[in-house]
Each structure stands twice: as structure tokens, then as C-alpha cells.
Amino acid sequence: MAKNHGKQIKNDAQYEALRDKGMSKEKSARIANSPKASKKGGQASDLGSRTKSELLAEAKKIGITGRHAMKKEELIKAIRNH
């Protein structure tokens, strides 16, 4: 049974599974709290199919600095590795 992490984590079981895989607390929480978490087994839509504006918004949401100077491919890499 998944540990209850309180209101800040919406999907406790998914959060714990991600932490067990070695992901950071921040990244695990972001994925477990994502509204798209249930889609495709926890994966959001393909980053390559998003516009640069959508990628900039995602980068801003997760706190990536220097995002406006990045090309689309660099944004995708930064988001994936954050």
C-alpha cells in the first residue's frame, strides 16, 4: 500500500514508484501531480509535437532558466532532463 504523502501529492503510488526508479522528489511530485498523469501510463504528449510557445510555458512552470534563448530542441532536452 502506498504511503500517504498528504495533499501535496495527488497520486501516492505513482510518486513512490518514480522515487524507487531513482527520480528526484521534485520530478516525481511533478509527474504524480500532472493532470495528464493517467494518460498513456503517466506520459504527457510528445514534446516534439508541441509548439515552442507551449514548450516555453512548460519550461517556465518547472523553473528552467535561460529558456528564451534556447532553440526548440534545446528546450525539449532541458525539459526532459529537469
Results as ranks from 00 to 15, higher is better:
residue 41 G to V: 05
residue 2 A to L: 03
residue 12 D to R: 01
residue 48 G to V: 07
residue 41 G to M: 08
residue 1 M to K: 14
residue 24 S to P: 03
residue 15 Y to K: 01
residue 70 M to D: 04
residue 32 A to I: 02
residue 40 K to F: 14
residue 33 N to L: 02
residue 38 S to Q: 12
residue 51 T to A: 04
residue 16 E to R: 06
residue 55 L to V: 02
residue 34 S to R: 09
residue 15 Y to L: 03
residue 51 T to G: 03
residue 55 L to G: 00
residue 32 A to W: 00
residue 58 E to M: 14
residue 72 K to R: 08
residue 55 L to P: 00
residue 34 S to F: 02
residue 68 H to S: 08
residue 30 R to I: 08
residue 81 N to K: 15
residue 60 K to C: 02
residue 79 I to E: 00
residue 64 I to R: 00
residue 45 S to I: 12
residue 13 A to N: 09
residue 27 K to P: 02
residue 79 I to R: 00
residue 68 H to N: 14
residue 79 I to G: 00
residue 29 A to C: 09
residue 37 A to C: 13
residue 79 I to N: 00
residue 17 A to M: 09
residue 57 A to V: 10
residue 39 K to H: 15
residue 32 A to S: 05
residue 46 D to W: 10
residue 82 H to W: 14
residue 35 P to F: 07
residue 76 I to M: 05
residue 3 K to Y: 09
residue 52 K to E: 11
residue 22 G to I: 09
residue 12 D to W: 06
residue 68 H to C: 08
residue 30 R to M: 13
residue 18 L to H: 01
residue 33 N to F: 01
residue 61 K to Y: 10
residue 5 H to P: 02
residue 82 H to P: 06
residue 34 S to M: 05
residue 78 A to C: 03
residue 25 K to C: 07
residue 60 K to H: 08
residue 1 M to A: 10
residue 35 P to H: 04
residue 80 R to M: 12
residue 29 A to G: 07
residue 78 A to W: 01
residue 51 T to Q: 02
residue 74 E to C: 05
residue 24 S to R: 04
residue 57 A to C: 07
residue 13 A to S: 12
residue 63 G to K: 01
residue 65 T to K: 12
residue 14 Q to L: 15
residue 17 A to V: 10
residue 24 S to C: 07
residue 35 P to L: 06
residue 48 G to P: 05
residue 35 P to K: 07
residue 49 S to Q: 14
residue 60 K to Y: 09
residue 27 K to C: 04
residue 43 Q to M: 15
residue 4 N to D: 14
residue 52 K to V: 12
residue 81 N to M: 11
residue 80 R to A: 10
residue 36 K to Y: 12
residue 27 K to Q: 08
residue 74 E to I: 05
residue 46 D to L: 08
residue 4 N to S: 15
residue 6 G to I: 09
residue 10 K to W: 06
residue 63 G to A: 04
residue 53 S to H: 10
residue 76 I to V: 03
residue 65 T to D: 13
residue 76 I to C: 00
residue 30 R to S: 13
residue 25 K to M: 07
residue 57 A to F: 08
residue 28 S to E: 02
residue 21 K to I: 07
residue 71 K to P: 04
residue 63 G to P: 01
residue 35 P to A: 06
residue 63 G to Y: 03
residue 27 K to I: 03
residue 31 I to K: 02
residue 19 R to D: 05
residue 50 R to H: 07
residue 56 L to H: 00
residue 15 Y to I: 01
residue 55 L to W: 00
residue 15 Y to W: 06
residue 18 L to M: 13
residue 57 A to E: 14
residue 36 K to A: 15
residue 31 I to C: 03
residue 21 K to M: 13
residue 82 H to S: 14
residue 42 G to S: 04
residue 53 S to R: 11
residue 31 I to Y: 02
residue 81 N to W: 13
residue 34 S to E: 03
residue 25 K to I: 09
residue 40 K to D: 15
residue 7 K to E: 12
residue 33 N to Q: 03
residue 79 I to T: 00
residue 24 S to H: 06
residue 12 D to Y: 05
residue 67 R to W: 07
residue 2 A to Q: 05
residue 73 E to F: 06
residue 24 S to M: 04
residue 72 K to L: 04
residue 67 R to I: 07
residue 62 I to K: 08
residue 45 S to M: 12
residue 53 S to E: 13
residue 30 R to K: 13
residue 65 T to I: 11
residue 8 Q to K: 15
residue 43 Q to R: 15
residue 8 Q to M: 15
residue 10 K to S: 08
